[in-house]
């Protein structure tokens, strides 16, 4: 099953990609995807989104979902 994974800001530089489609054996949570791509537990202030909505790391993803990881936001 395919999931689109996106990273922003400092995470792009750290993990070396902005977005990519990854084949996973589902079911999988967002937290498990983070472990897959980073190899480390999620930092306390790491944020995530599922299909353009803020989400929790315990949320299960579905085939075709878009998952994003990013640091605290600071627009304005």
């Amino acid at each position: 099953m395919s999931v689109k994974v996106r990273c922003f800001a400092s995470l792009r530089e750290e993990l070396g990609f902005g977005d990519k489609s990854v084949e996973y054996q589902l079911p999988l949570t967002i937290g498990e995807i983070w472990m897959e791509i980073s190899g480390r537990p999620a930092p306390e202030n790491l944020l995530c989104a599922l299909n353009h909505e803020y989400s929790k790391f315990s949320q299960t993803v579905q085939d075709g979902d878009e998952v994003a990881f990013f640091p605290p936001v600071n627009g304005g």
């Binding site: 922003f8 800001a9 400092s10 989104a49 803020y54 990013f70 640091p71 936001v73 600071n74 627009g75 304005g76």
Partner: peptide
């Protein structure tokens, strides 16, 4: 609106 933008809108500064 501005406070929400600061705390939730997905922007990052380098």
């Amino acid at each position: 609106m501005m406070e929400h933008l600061k705390s939730h809108a997905t922007f990052w500064k380098k």
